[in-house]
Simulated scan of single mutants.
Amino acid sequence: MQISFRLAALAAAAAVLNLMGWAQASRTVNGEWKGTIKGPKGIGDIAIVVDLTKSPKGEWIGTFGMPDVPVTGLPLDKLVVREPNISFAVPGVPGAASFEGKLSPDGQLAGTFITGSSKTPLSLTRTGQAKVALPTANSALAKGFEGAWWGSYDAGGPNRYHLVLKLSRRPDGAAMGTFTNIDGDNVETPITSIDQVGNYLTFEVRPLAASFRGSLNTAGTNIAGEWKQGANTTPLTFGRGASINSINSVLPKPLEGNWESTFDAGTEGKIDFVLKLGHIADGTATGTLSNKEPNSKALPLSVILVKGNTISFDVGLIKGKFHGTWNAIGNAVAGTYEMQEIMTAPMTFKRPVSASKK
């Protein structure tokens, strides 16, 4: 009887301790947190996962994920925990994403998720222990890898992408870098981790669920390897270049500004295009192509080549190509537009009426 009583007492004490432990855990931001935010129209809710814990040094660390995208394990930046208050930034997510919240008495982590000028309520529920998998520290970077590199690859279907890779060294010699998809969002994304051993380079870009592994050739002019994104793997070679614009021509002044054209897409009807041409500080051409629909996205141009009175350019995201000649008075560029390598049609860009009257 005495033994049974002692066992029962121990069991009761253990239960109390477990309850105390759970109550204590519910009053801290340490753990795995899950919730959803409302996505853009037609997208629905987007799942969010935030993991928060302390490092062996006692510092708060954490990661952010959107498993439906899929993006996981993005290291948090500017993480400030003054319980019950918490704030952090998520580098690599468009719109300079950040969160400001507070741990409520009922154990919810509630606050505001901010991207650009958009502010969305976000309530997170603690679902278990934190699973923080921070990237490995960047290795040192040999001088031969420093600088800007560009490459391109065919992603299948209508998609062809031009890429810019920038690598540099921190004061302590450790590697750092950014990655830009010119034909995608055209935004520099911080590289999550970089490892360089001899002629081999490996890097991971967690915001894109992507990684690259390749080797630098003897001449130091290109890095050839494989690009992995999600379940897809494709050969990719980066060549030297200040940017993707380094292969573009200098833009003559008569071509600067806005141009318009109506493209006959057959059964799809007619599409009104707007071509915008400009240049960066050294005169190198840049540009975008969009249509006049209210929600049209301006697609970056790449490989803008000018020779004499001819101009050609690619629209990588939709596998479009244009080649034409501008007339003597500089108010029209007539040529052909090839779309997705399956259709070619005449196309003439003209100055907008308001511009031609000036």
Rank of each mutant, 00 (worst) to 15 (best):
Q2D: 02
Q2A: 07
R6C: 09
L10C: 12
A11W: 10
A13G: 13
A14C: 07
A14M: 06
A25D: 07
S26G: 01
R27L: 11
N30G: 10
E32K: 11
W33V: 02
T36S: 08
K38A: 15
K38V: 14
K38Y: 07
P40M: 05
I46C: 01
A47V: 08
I48V: 11
V50P: 03
D51L: 01
K54L: 04
E59G: 01
I61R: 03
T63K: 05
P75H: 02
K78H: 14
L79P: 10
R82K: 14
G92F: 08
P94H: 12
P94M: 13
P94S: 14
A97M: 05
S98G: 10
G101M: 03
G107E: 02
G107C: 06
Q108E: 09
A110I: 10
I114N: 14
I114D: 13
G116D: 13
G116Q: 08
K119P: 00
L122M: 04
G128K: 15
K131T: 09
V132K: 00
A137K: 07
A140G: 13
K143Q: 10
F145W: 07
E146K: 10
E146R: 07
G151I: 09
G151S: 06
G156S: 08
G157V: 06
P158Q: 12
K166V: 13
L167G: 08
R169T: 15
R170M: 13
R170C: 06
D172S: 09
A174P: 00
T178E: 10
I182L: 15
G184I: 07
D185Q: 12
E188L: 13
P190K: 03
S193Y: 02
I194E: 02
D195I: 11
V197T: 12
Y200V: 15
F203I: 04
V205E: 03
R206E: 00
R206I: 02
S211R: 04
G214P: 06
S215D: 12
S215R: 11
L216Q: 04
N217M: 03
T218D: 11
A219Q: 06
G225F: 06
L236P: 06
L236Y: 04
R240D: 02
G241E: 02
A242D: 09
S243E: 02
N245E: 13
N248Q: 11
F263E: 11
F263Q: 12
A265K: 15
G269A: 10
G269I: 02
K270W: 04
L275C: 12
G278C: 07
I280K: 09
D282R: 07
G283A: 07
T284C: 05
T288E: 03
L289A: 14
L289C: 10
N291H: 09
E293L: 06
P294T: 01
S296N: 00
S296Q: 03
L299G: 05
P300T: 13
P300M: 07
S302C: 12
V303F: 13
V303L: 14
V303E: 15
I304Y: 02
T310M: 07
T310K: 07
S312K: 13
K321D: 12
G324K: 02
N331E: 06
A332Q: 11
A334L: 09
I342H: 11
T344M: 11
T348A: 14
S354P: 01
A355L: 10
S356P: 08
K358R: 12
